[in-house]
Every structure is written in C-alpha cells, then in structure tokens.
C-alpha cells in the first residue's frame, strides 16, 4: 500500500541517518522570530519612555537644553504646592465621576431598552447612538465648539428663542460652566460605546432566565433589578473602569476646545503635562506629573485585569 517515494519523504533521512536534529534550537529561533518584534516595539516605545519619565522627573531640563539639573523630589514638591496641578487632578476626578454617572448610567438604561424593550428597530438606534465613537475627538470638539459659540452657535440660538439668557461669557468661556460642558460633550461621544458594551453583556443572559423569572412573577423593572443587573455585574464593573481610565486619559477633547482654559478651569493632567512640557519647556516638571498619571493608570489597569480575569 505504500509508495516508496512517499515513505522516504515522510520518514525523512534525518532520523534514519541518525544526525541529531536540534529541535530545541529550532524552537528558540522560531520563538525569537515570533516574539521579538512585539517585545522590541513595546520595549522601545512603552517601557523605555516610562522609565525615562520616572528618571526625568528628578531633573530640571528644557526641550532642547542639554543641562539636566538634579532636583531630587523637587518636581513632586512643586506639584504638591501647585494649585493648577490640584485643579487638573480635581477636574480629572469630576470627569471620572460625572462620566460614570452619565455614560455608564445612561448607557445601561439604553442598553436595557434596546435589549428587551423594543419590538423592532433596535439595530438602527444602536447604530446611531454608537456612531460618535468612530469620530475623532478633535472633530467632535470642534463641532461642539461651534455649537456652543456665543455668536453663531446653535445652542445660544435655541436658548434665546425660548426666551432665556445664555451665559454672558459663553458656555466654554465661563470658568464655572466650562468643565460641565466638557462632561456633556464626553457623554455625547461615549455613551453609545458604554451602551454597546453593556448590550453585549445583556445579550449573553440566557432567555430561559427571564422565562423562569416571569414564572416566578418578576417582570419588567423587577426582572431588570433581580435578573439583569446581577447578571451583568462584571461587565458593569469593567465599564466603570474603562470610563475611569478614559477620564484620566482625557486630552484631545479639552485641547481642541478650551486648551485647559479659561484660567485653567478645564485643565486636566493630560493637558497640563502638555502645557508644561511643550509650551513652557518645564520638561522635568511635566515628567513628574506624568509619573502621577502613570501610577494612576497602571493601578486602574491592574484592577481591570483582575476583574476581567474573574469574569
């Protein structure tokens, strides 16, 4: 049954001639071929900069200056007594808490409606509500910049038509209002994303669970409370974490609308790092703030990993 040619080609000469074939070294070579590029990219562009940021945070230096002056923890001390640093951190926290309430909250409600509340049309609604997620934050920022503009903006026109008076300094020009406007723009952009995330979780709940619950007398809001929410607990936690991380990483939206103004009222860590480094040339100080942001992000990332592992 065996063709000799096939047999030779399969059993091979290597084994027969007894020449030891180094499977281990072939394995090592293919491992480095496969793994090397990823390690190189991540090492050079993530690990090294992260280490350099920590290193640089102990020095004073400018964009082009070659003199690095060692200041120890001086940059951190400077941050601790810098009111703008604290405003930036506070604003990040406002955005985090506000986004969790608005984006995850509204996202959950919308997802629940789309999952079981509508007889038809949920795909269309999902597509519309999710759409801002694929648009660049800069484009979104500019659209809203124009909508909120005191002269040509649509919002003022609507407010005036109703007979109310819009804020004199403009929606983004008033230090007391600006950060809340940022929150609304972020909500406009990301609620759809949260909705889709949570919707994916909802669709994983077996139909039988609802059927059993309805036999037990739990329908509508009761079913939502006793069946739906507990079932998507983990997804909700992940959604909160993603929103939290996003709240600390926010940059594009603020850079393209207020650049942190007016009077630092919308400053966040991201924009403040940029300003200190590239507008004011305080690279070392910027590095120190970066390290704070880095620590927050890594801690949150670790938390997310733990939770998604458990899920």
């Amino acid at each position: 049954m065996m063709t000799d040619a096939a047999k030779t080609s399969l059993t091979g000469d290597r084994g027969r001639s007894g020449a030891p074939r180094s499977a281990k070294s072939a394995n090592a070579i293919s491992t480095s071929v496969l793994l090397g590029p990823a390690l190189l990219l991540c090492g050079v562009f993530i690990v090294v900069p992260a280490i350099l940021a920590i290193f640089g945070s102990f020095f004073d230096f400018g964009i082009t200056s070659q003199n690095w002056e060692f200041v120890g923890l001086g940059n951190y001390g400077r941050a601790a007594s810098d009111p703008v640093f604290w405003i930036a951190l506070r604003n990040n926290l406002i955005i985090v808490v506000g986004s969790i309430i608005l984006q995850v909250g509204v996202g959950t409600i919308l997802a629940a409606i789309l999952d079981r509340g509508l007889p038809s049309g949920s795909t269309i609604f999902r597509t519309i509500i999710f759409a801002p997620m694929v648009v660049s934050s800069v484009a979104i920022a500019i659209i809203w910049l124009v909508i909120l503009d005191p002269n040509v903006g649509a919002l003022n026109a609507v407010i005036k038509q109703i007979g109310l008076t819009p804020p004199a300094l403009g929606w983004l020009g008033d230090p007391n209002i600006a950060i809340w406007m940022i929150l609304i723009i972020a909500m406009w952009q990301f609620t759809g994303f949260m909705m889709v995330l949570i919707l994916a979780g909802l669709q994983g709940i077996p139909k039988e669970l609802y059927e059993a619950a309805s036999l037990d007398g739990a329908r509508g809001l009761k079913a939502f409370w006793y069946i739906t929410l507990p079932s998507i607990r983990n997804i909700l936690i992940v959604a909160v974490l993603i929103t939290t991380i996003g709240g600390f990483k926010v940059f594009d939206l603020i850079y393209a609308t207020t650049q942190g103004g007016p009077a630092n009222a919308t400053q966040v860590l991201g924009t403040y790092i940029y300003q200190q480094a590239f507008n004011l040339g305080n690279m070392g100080y910027a590095d120190a703030i970066s390290v704070v942001l880095l620590l927050i992000a890594v801690a949150l990332g670790w938390l997310q990993l733990q939770i998604s592992r458990r899920a």
């Binding site: 399969l10 059993t11 091979g12 290597r14 030891p20 074939r21 499977a23």
Partner: peptide, 10 residues
C-alpha cells in the same frame, strides 16, 4: 524515534 519530530516518525 523517541526524539524525532512527529512528522519524521512514520
């Protein structure tokens, strides 16, 4: 054949 590659074992 105990150290051969799977495909070389026949």
């Amino acid at each position: 054949i105990s150290r051969d590659e799977p495909s070389d074992r026949g």
